[in-house]
């Protein structure tokens, strides 16, 4: 029973990890940028949620749409105001620019909110649980997070494979140069893509902030988790990323059974083992 419980908790945690990873994966797929500041952006939007709920007193579900809209705007602006000017011929440069953004964000948050851990509250839903099997209780909130992760991946897949914007995204991902040569407005595509990425970031941020504590230095852990989920799953495969997230979630939950300090380490170790055994991930995109 204990074992099954760990497994279920781990799988549900994996949903949250997949949510961390979606934006990172999408941004890399489209722009070939690995956004080192990804985790810090997640934490920044957790603080945005905190400001709205704690200081303005608006309940989270009511404030969420506005926060997501804000996130989309922030993403557009981040691309328009910064990354658009970053030459990407040498992958070093965007990497290091994102690194600078990461450090700036962490320290801005430290100045604004202090180093104390914070948490968002969602009232009764946080504590509610259902008995899915005899003696196996699962938190309703965890189920909601997992369902949202699945829904978001499904939605993104539809967007990428069924819409005109998705066609443009894939064309740019194949070859930015060719797409631009044919008259595709690649800048507009990138701005929209960054806006969408930031919406996924904000969703992940709010859910993370309800689930547990965060502080200005929490970003890198989220980045590493997201990265590991993507690599385990295989680059470019969103369902693979979910699988990667689940594997990490289960590993962390199993590690936590030994000792709380083993939780993170266990996740990393499983990642390294899988990287050695399956360097291209569990579900590599064929051909590409």
């Amino acid at each position: 029973m204990e074992l099954l419980n760990t497994l279920v908790q781990g799988v549900l945690l994996g949903g949250l990890f997949a949510l961390y990873a979606l934006g990172l994966s999408l941004l890399f797929g489209v722009m070939r940028i690995v956004n080192i500041a990804h985790g810090d952006l997640i934490v920044a939007f957790a603080y945005a949620g905190l400001m709205v709920t704690e200081f303005l007193g608006i309940p989270l579900p009511a404030a969420a749409p506005a926060i997501l809209l804000l996130a989309a705007g922030a993403g557009w602006l981040l691309q328009r105001g910064l990354f658009e000017f970053v030459p990407r011929r040498d992958p070093l440069i965007p990497l290091l620019v994102a690194f600078g953004v990461s450090i700036i964000l962490q320290n801005l948050m430290l100045m604004g909110f202090g180093a104390d851990p914070q948490k968002l509250s969602l009232g009764a839903l946080e504590q509610a649980s259902v008995e899915i099997l005899p003696e196996l209780h699962v938190g309703v909130f965890s189920l909601v997070v997992f369902a949202l992760a699945v829904a978001l991946i499904g939605g993104l897949q539809l967007m990428i494979y069924r819409t005109a914007f998705g066609r443009a995204l894939r064309a740019v991902s194949d070859s930015e140069e060719n797409a631009a040569m044919l008259g595709l407005d690649t800048r507009a595509v990138f701005r929209k893509a960054f806006a969408i990425v930031m919406v996924t970031v904000a969703i992940a941020a709010l859910l993370m902030a309800v689930r547990g504590n965060f502080d200005p230095a929490s970003g890198p852990t989220r980045l590493l988790t997201a990265f590991e989920a993507i690599v385990i799953g295989g680059l470019g495969s969103m369902w693979g990323t979910l699988a990667g997230g689940i594997i990490l979630g289960v590993a962390q939950m199993a590690g936590a059974q030994i000792d709380a300090s083993w939780q993170v380490l266990a996740g990393h170790l499983v990642f390294l083992v899988l990287l050695v055994l399956r360097p291209r991930g569990l579900f590599p995109k064929h051909g590409g």
Partner: peptide, 26 residues
């Protein structure tokens, strides 16, 4: 101005139909 570029520049991630439809977007 419509361009048929040197080397064709077909996008491998897009199906034949999607490659053609991409033109309509531009």
């Amino acid at each position: 101005i419509g361009l048929v570029p040197e080397g064709r520049r077909i996008f491998p991630s897009l199906s034949v139909e999607e490659n053609i439809l991409l033109g309509a977007q531009l």
